[in-house]
Design a binder for these strands. Structure first.
Lengths: 232, 232
DNA sequence: ATTACTAGCTGTCGAGTAA
DNA sequence: TTTACTCGACAGCTAGTAA
């Protein structure tokens, strides 16, 4: 999931974005695309199939061409390079967002995941703290939902996926965070999650519910930012 | 000249830029570079030679590594992709924001300004409605304050400044808006204002306080966007 | 018109190794 | 330590062609 696209496929994705496929579904034939890419029709066709397999685009093949739209994951990959360029080419301000969300009780899944050694070791190593075995779930509303999508597109600290005896675990994106202007922790975003974009999952070295005396429905403030250096 | 770099070489150039070679000469060995690129030392070496031949980088090969600096031409190639990404990603994504703010009573200045014929005529002409003689003030908090700063950086409908007998009035930026998912209006941002970024001033053809039966402290939702095409 | 398979070609890669 | 050559392996390419 977080293994990055090969360069030639990235460029095909980039060209599709140039044609507007990042905003809406576009119609394009493999022949048209090949002339844009400067390659053969066959290569254009293969690139589209590969990008679809990788989840970067959605495609409907019709009789008069392909209908293409770049997925959220595809846009994320484009944003990643965009941020990399901007950091060097423009005087990049550190991007950060302040969220406000309402505490709710999840399914306890967070505690299960976070205590897997595969994740826990990486959190210690890459985030610099030993996580309390549980996550704080915040429900976002209004503009904060879109704000979370934007945060998710920014460079992150990546916890690699792994396997244990029973099953495999996907990669997780982490953003350093400060909770209620006081406690350090991180916002975590699982690549595949049961939650939608209206949920912010927060981890921390301490038990946040106790520290802040939180109950369901309480408002919590989270300052989250992209790390200075993205560790892979 | 404009024959573009092959994708894998572009990515190597991009990585060199990530390491700072766009700003200054950096020292890097082919082995170090290969680990950044995720390829062999030999490929890293070959890429550097090719990029040098193509005039994308300047290189001095020393005994303890290569000294690399991206040339003006190399930076041009990076900027080209950067602009391509920005066109689609920024202008596409940053079109609209949803704010939530709390009603408060201002100093009544809004009513004074909005009834000046110099503004009123332009509002009718450029926004397409005759404004109710007053503004609704919303107090923003948390991330919404930063969101307002971003909105303010976007293209706006500009009400030109003017003078009457007594004094001069500054330009005003307007963003089309929908209030509480129902009423059309606009967010206005005076170039010089007594309010700071935590206040959202809203105008509309109708008296919003009455229409929504609003009292100080009530929450109001505002969808604000940059106009599609700059109407001048 | 399309998309996409097969076959064969080309260029990119990387292990081994020299300087 | 470096950089970079040779060369076998193979990924990615294109022409021809089917559906």
């Amino acid at each position: 999931m977080t293994e990055s696209l090969k360069p030639h496929l990235w460029f095909t994705l980039y060209r599709l974005m140039n044609m507007g496929a990042g905003r809406r579904e576009i119609r394009v034939s493999t022949t048209e695309l090949s002339s844009v890419l400067g390659c053969s029709q066959q290569s254009a066709s293969r690139h589209l199939r590969l990008l679809e397999q990788l989840g970067m685009i959605e495609r409907r093949v019709g009789v008069n061409g392909s209908h293409i739209r770049i997925t959220e994951e595809g846009l994320r990959v484009l944003w990643e390079v965009y941020y990399g360029l901007r950091r060097q080419l423009e005087e990049g301000e550190l991007e950060a967002y302040i969220f406000e969300g309402v505490v709710f009780t999840g399914l306890g899944e967070g505690a299960y995941y976070i205590t897997r050694d595969g994740y826990r070791g990486q959190i210690r190593e890459k985030l610099g703290f030993d996580p309390y075995p549980g996550t704080l779930n915040l429900r976002l509303s209004g503009g904060y939902i879109e704000m979370k999508r934007r945060l998710t597109r920014m460079p992150a600290i990546i916890l690699e996926g792994f396997k244990d005896e029973e099953r495999s675990f996907g990669a997780v994106r982490c953003y350093p965070a400060i909770i209620n202007d006081d406690v350090e922790g991180a916002v975590i975003v699982a690549d595949r999650t049961i939650y939608d974009d209206s949920v912010l999952e927060v981890i921390s070295p301490i038990y946040l519910r106790k520290h802040f005396n939180l109950r369901d429905g309480d408002l919590v403030r989270v300052y989250a930012s992209s790390p200075r250096r993205s560790s892979s």
